[in-house]
Design a binder for these strands. Sequence first.
DNA 1: CGGCGTCAATGGTCTGACCACTCATCCTCT
DNA 2: AGAGGATGAGTGGTCAGACCATTGACGCCG
Lengths: 243, 243
Amino acid sequence: MVRGSTLALRPLERSRLYEDLVERLGEYVEEAKMVAGDRFPPERDLARQLGVSRTSIRQAMVVLQAQGFVDIRHGGGAFLRRPRGFGESLPRLMERRRRLPEVLEAREGLEVKLATLAAGRRTGQQLVAMRAALQRMRDDIAHGGLGIEGDRDFHRAVAEAAQNRVLVHLLDEIADAVQETRVESLSEPGRPLRSIDAHQRILEAVQASDADAAAKAMLDHLRQVADVSLLRWEPPSAGLADE
Amino acid sequence: MVRGSTLALRPLERSRLYEDLVERLGEYVEEAKMVAGDRFPPERDLARQLGVSRTSIRQAMVVLQAQGFVDIRHGGGAFLRRPRGFGESLPRLMERRRRLPEVLEAREGLEVKLATLAAGRRTGQQLVAMRAALQRMRDDIAHGGLGIEGDRDFHRAVAEAAQNRVLVHLLDEIADAVQETRVESLSEPGRPLRSIDAHQRILEAVQASDADAAAKAMLDHLRQVADVSLLRWEPPSAGLADE
DNA sequence: CGGCGTCAATGGTCTGACCACTCATCCTCT
DNA sequence: AGAGGATGAGTGGTCAGACCATTGACGCCG
């Protein structure tokens, strides 16, 4: 049940070939000093030089295309779109726990805005969803649980109420890391009760269509969450070497 | 040179097969009422039933894996991770211009936070970068340009100064749409000059390490940008049917 | 009954082929 | 000579089939 306890004995994931190739292509971009608009060598050449099949090259390229880093034109070639952060997918970026403080900050940026918008746009139905999530949290905690699901649903409901799919999408992208912080925070003694109050204040502000109050309530809540997890994981020295 | 002027005669891009397959798989997830954790049919079955090669199925799966929607285990199968927004990549979500108001709101959430953080963390070198970008903007405008590159570089410099790669990554994901709003805004008569002032205020606040002032300056600036583009593109009726 | 080997199922990669599209080149007709 | 079209090499898109690597359940054997 306890998952991360034996950190050294975790199942050691073998990387897929196309992931390595994405990395290699990133190195190539740097070495060749490619800039936006430059063309990559043909797939056949890359395959030969890297000693892999064209199939694998194509998988890597397709992923890079989906991530918006390259632009592939049938019959034309593959072109670089964004040299910055080439091949650095967000899940990959966040797989190290020391990124969690950054995740908390990103969450503040996104969710405070979402709360502000929600206060101005929420429908009655969305208020019902928020109340239901909060109640679910209360029930779970009353029965000795941590209220994790209710907490997640509540924030989800606020996001829905903001009626901005771009923001929701961005929040979804860091959802996994956010979930980690959620669990960590609610595992703190006495924290679930206080969390209920914080959510209650957010709900009231959104219900009252008070955008500023909603933003403040959300910010206070997230600071409370960060208070624990942040200080535990990150020595406050920022800006050091990264890779 | 003028790119988007003949909207009807744009080069009509044929969709790639794997993109269609991603969509089909999304439909399958709904029809089969799959929930997180459910397993997909084997690649060979999917290929046969959809009448395509396994290669193409794999490309679709690899993309979905990179986007975090599925979890593929060698020898085990492919499992659903997030049913919500399945296969809905951000570029695809934003390719319709009516999403631009949402992009502006997302930009506010991200960049206001970035400005706040930048005020607290910026190094001398990053201040230099901000000043250089602003100067580049001034020079370009003095010579009759719109200062687009300088504007972009300035916001980039602020983001760098915030020293939060997660936030920067999220901002990068909407970079293309942001660029559209930038061009549109700076094309407004008299706007470049006012934009310089707005950037100047942001720079001063960040330089003074005044987080609140930086946030306010950035928000004012973005509101100014939105003032034009927002009202032009979006009839203010939100929450209507989408697809 | 429990541990362990076996093997079918399933994803991972490779090969070679052919199709579709692009673009520069050259040829033809005016 | 110039405009237009035909041609062909280059390059991405897809396919079929094969084989390897890993998983997980089943059943054998102690």
